[in-house]
Amino acid sequence: MSQPVTFTWAGFRRGMRLSLPLLIGTAPFGVVCGIVAQGVGLSYLETLLMSVFVYAGSAELVAMATWAHPASPLAAGFAAMVVNLRLALMGPVLAPWLDRLRGWRLWGSLFVMVDQNWALSVRAMNEGERDAAQLAGMGVPMLAGWIVTSMLGRVLGAGLRPAPGHPIFFAALAVFICMLVTLWRGRQDVLPWAVAGGVALATLRLLPHTSWYIVAGAIAGSLAGAVRDRMRA
């Protein structure tokens, strides 16, 4: 800790400049979420509220995979929790910044923390950046971009009115397949991924029309990977 951590407008603006490529990269994800929201019957207002207050694309897609009418708060909330558990490990990494913040600066920065601005903030912090406003500086434009692109997707969906099973909904699948390609670290992922896929298939057969298969598959797969790692260690 050579210099004190600050939270300045200059740091916020540096973050905003860094967010430009991130905005372009995540735009298609937002559009896909909006199209799916239209597909499961969410109104414009409901889509807007979800984009603003949930602001977690993967969790939104997982919850909407089996959106019921009327919606199930328990299933949706639980799915969002499991999908977003990874975020719980991200905040503590930025503790050297966040521990120095109070009030809205802290809680607001955490609200707009997503994978991309977190990763760039960790890098900046490790390179000696002392202005914690960078995280929010990237996060606020990204949230704005997320709202705009989701609503754009919702409008697009309303224009196309695709029937259930239309191949445009493959886009949601493509988002996750792309993420799997990015996540792939090698042979160590084979076992947890295979267990996750298998348990998901079996659970869907036992509990059709619910999103529990995603939760069950994810928990089984990650436990399998962690147990295997421990037995090897």
Partner: peptide, 18 residues
């Protein structure tokens, strides 16, 4: 370790049945 394997598990669970 469990938490780091969760994202891959979620995406596989979503993709496989679909």
């Amino acid at each position: 370790a469990v938490l780091t394997y969760i994202p891959g598990g979620i995406f596989m669970s979503y993709v496989t049945p679909a």
